[in-house]
């Protein structure tokens, strides 16, 4: 987290100039630290992969989004009504409904950095 700390300093020390995309992004990333997250995890049946995914997501949420997230786990076999709305192709799929924009993360969430990048919790770089 050393990298993100140094970035935080940079952002706070400088006023954001209009049109400075990088600065805006950094600021938005900073906001993520306080925003409320609404997440939806789609899994396909109660198999090993699904279990791993649920566990991993929970772990990450507890670590990074403590007390400021809602997580809904949906088994696409059980609940078919939500599938057409969220257009799930791959399972498991984690969708960040809020804050906008919509984000999608697929797989069993074993690669933690990828999940964090997908949820905009750490910088892409």
């Amino acid at each position: 987290m050393a990298a993100s700390k140094s970035m935080k300093k940079k952002v706070s020390s400088k006023a954001i100039e209009p049109g400075d995309v990088t600065a805006e992004y950094e600021a938005a990333l900073e906001n993520r630290k306080t925003e409320h997250y609404v997440l939806r995890l789609y899994i396909a049946g109660n198999n090993l992969r699904s279990q791993v995914a649920v566990e991993n997501v929970k772990k990450i949420c507890d670590e990074y989004l403590k007390d400021r997230y809602d997580l809904e786990v949906i088994d696409i076999y059980q609940d078919r009504t939500k599938n057409p709305v969220d257009l799930i192709l791959a399972a498991p799929t984690l969708i960040r409904k809020l804050p906008l924009p919509l984000r999608r993360v697929i797989g069993d969430m074993t690669r933690k950095e990828k999940v964090l990048v997908g949820l905009d919790l750490i910088s892409r770089v």
């Binding site: 789609y42 396909a44 049946g45 992969r49 791993v52 995914a53 696409i76 076999y77 078919r80 599938n83 057409p84 257009l87 799930i88 192709l89 791959a90 399972a91 498991p92 799929t93 919509l102 984000r103 999608r104 993360v105 697929i106 797989g107 069993d108 969430m109 074993t110 690669r111 933690k112 990828k114 999940v115 990048v117 997908g118």
Partner: peptide, 23 residues
């Protein structure tokens, strides 16, 4: 019509396309 935007998708491990099959 199903759009698949690669840029939106972050792959974090093993997955399958069960969602597509169900749909």
């Amino acid at each position: 019509h199903i759009t698949v935007e690669r840029s939106e998708i972050e792959e974090t491990g093993e997955y399958d396309l069960e969602g597509l099959f169900i749909r």
